[in-house]
Amino acid sequence: MAEHLGLSEAISRYVQDGDTVALEGFTHLIPFAAGHEIIRQQKRDLTVSRMTPDLIYDQLIGAGCVRKLLFSWGGNPGVGSLYRFRDAVENGWPVPLELEEHSHAGLTNRYVAGASGMPFTVMKGYLGNSLGEIASHVRFLDCPFTGETVAAVRALNPDTGILHAQRADRAGNVQLWGISGVFREVAMASGRVIVTVEEVVDVLDRRPGDFVMPSMAVTAVCEVPQGARPSYVQDYYERDNDLYRKWPEMSRDRDTFLAWLDESVMGA
C-alpha cells in the first residue's frame, strides 16, 4: 500500500547516495520537482537511468549528483545539446560522468525484463551495429527454436523509480492518461516507487485511455502540483517550450548554470 508523504520525506527515505534511480516520463510527466528535491538534499554518486536525459538529468548532472548515466538519446529535443551533460562527459565537471549507452528499444526492454522478473529479454535492433559491440548489457545468443541470432539485453531493476502522474486517491491508487512512456515498466521493475501527482482526490473518475496503477505497486505518493514543469501534464498544463529553447543559454556557462541552480532550485 502506498503511503502519502511529503516530497522531501519521500526522497530522504527512498533515495540514498549510490542508488540506481530512474526518473522517467517521455516528454510528458517528467518528475522535475522530485529531481530538484534530490539536488537540494545533495544526493551523491547516483546511477540514473532515463531514455532521454532531458533538462532534468542535465540539472542533476550539473549539480554533481550523478556518477553514471544510463540513456538512449542525449539531446534537447528540437533544440540541440545538453551542455551540463557534455561538460561532464568532456571535462569531468563537476564530477566525472560514466555513460552506459542504449537505443530506446534497448533501454525500454531492460525495464521490461526487470519488470518481468527475468534476467534478460531479447530483441533484434542491436544486431549488426556498433552499439551492440560496445555495450556490456548486450549479448548475442541463438534462438533455441529457430536458430536465428538475437540480442539479449540485461534486466534493469532500479532501486527507486520516480514518476509523475495526474492524480491519486486517498488509498494511493495512481491515475494517468496521455503519453505513458515506460511508466508501468519502471514502476514494476523498481524496488521502491515514488509517484508525484498533480492532485489527490477522493474518487478517481475514469478517463478514456487512462490507467490506474494500484496502490499496492506504489511505495509513496506525494502531492506536488506543477511537479512536472517545465514538461507538461495533459489536461493540467502545457509544456514550457520557451524554457526548453532558452535552456542552452541558461546552462552553457558553468557560472550562469550555478546561479540558476542557487536561485531556482536551492533557494526554492
Partner: peptide, 10 residues
C-alpha cells in the same frame, strides 16, 4: 559527442 541512437536502430 552526438545525441545517440534513440529509435534509429529499430
Amino acid at each position: 559527442r552526438l545525441p545517440g541512437a534513440g529509435g534509429a536502430p529499430e
